[in-house]
Structure formats: C-alpha cells, structure tokens
Simulated scan of single mutants.
Amino acid sequence: MAQQAMQPSAGRRKTTGSLFASDHRPHPLPDILLWVTAVVGVTAFISGMFDNLHLLSSWAGLIGILTGLYGQFISVTTHERFALIMGLGSSAVGFYLGMAHGGLFGGVLG
C-alpha cells in the first residue's frame, strides 16, 4: 500500500513549466527565439511611432523579423507559432515605420 502512494498516477501528465509547450516537452531554442522576437518586436513597434528613433525601430524590426522567421521554421507547437506571429507582426510594423522615417542608415552614412 505504501508503494502505491509513492508512484505517480498513470493519468497525470508531467509538465515542463513552459507556457508554450503544449506537447509537454521542453523546447528551449524556440522559447528563446519567441521571447527575443516578442521583446524586440514591442521595442520596434513603440519606437517606430517616433520619427527620431528610426535607427532603433528599423534595426530592432529587422532583428525581430529574422529571429521570428527562424523561430517559425523550427517551432513545434501551435502556441509557439501563434506567439511568434504576434512578435513578427509588431517587428514588421516597427521595421516599416522605421524605414519610412529614415531607414537603417538614414543620416549616418551620408
């Protein structure tokens, strides 16, 4: 009887602690790419609203687009893909606004 209490029940799932791992397996690289894309995307989106921050928004947007695309390529679960698309969208909007306000090298190289 004591041994039965020590063994985990067969119906209980083992969780990994990741919010985005719906298959209950760890995905460290897609999770890192997801968070980098999200943080850089929000930075690009917010800084894209200001004309004088075009260097920050265009470079942050470009980095967010590249990390988001690679994250989409290696992602495993739908949760990861959804969050990556949100980060990609905000990165793209920030990138395009930064390009419209002066671009990647606007005013620095000429």
Rank of each mutant, 00 (worst) to 15 (best):
Q4C: 08
M6A: 14
P8D: 12
A10Y: 12
R12M: 14
R13V: 11
R13M: 15
K14D: 15
K14C: 10
T15G: 12
T15Y: 12
T16C: 11
S18V: 06
S18D: 13
L19D: 10
L19G: 06
F20W: 05
A21V: 09
S22C: 08
S22W: 12
S22T: 15
S22M: 13
R25E: 15
R25Y: 07
R25G: 05
L29T: 11
L29R: 10
D31W: 07
D31Y: 09
I32L: 13
I32K: 10
L33H: 03
L33F: 09
W35R: 06
T37V: 06
A38K: 00
A38I: 10
V40L: 10
G41W: 02
G41R: 01
V42H: 04
V42I: 14
V42Q: 06
T43P: 00
A44M: 01
F45V: 06
F45T: 04
F45A: 09
I46L: 11
I46V: 14
S47G: 04
S47L: 04
G48E: 02
G48V: 02
M49D: 08
F50K: 08
D51W: 00
N52G: 10
L53E: 03
L53H: 07
H54T: 03
H54M: 09
L55T: 08
L55K: 05
L56P: 01
S58H: 05
W59Y: 10
A60S: 15
A60V: 07
L62Q: 02
I63Y: 08
G64Y: 01
G64F: 00
G64H: 00
L66H: 02
L66R: 02
T67P: 07
G68D: 04
G68H: 03
L69M: 14
L69A: 13
L69W: 11
L69G: 11
G71H: 03
Q72M: 11
F73C: 08
S75C: 12
S75G: 12
S75Y: 03
S75I: 06
V76S: 07
T77F: 04
T77K: 04
T78V: 14
T78M: 10
E80K: 05
E80H: 12
E80T: 05
R81H: 08
R81I: 05
F82L: 13
L84A: 06
I85Q: 08
I85E: 05
I85M: 12
M86H: 08
M86F: 11
G87N: 00
G87P: 01
G89D: 06
S90E: 07
S90D: 06
S90M: 14
S90T: 14
A92S: 14
V93C: 06
V93I: 11
V93G: 01
V93H: 05
G94F: 01
F95E: 00
L97T: 03
L97E: 06
G98M: 00
G98D: 00
G98T: 03
M99G: 09
H101P: 05
G102H: 03
G102L: 04
G102I: 02
G103A: 03
L104F: 13
V108I: 12
V108N: 04
L109V: 13
G110M: 07
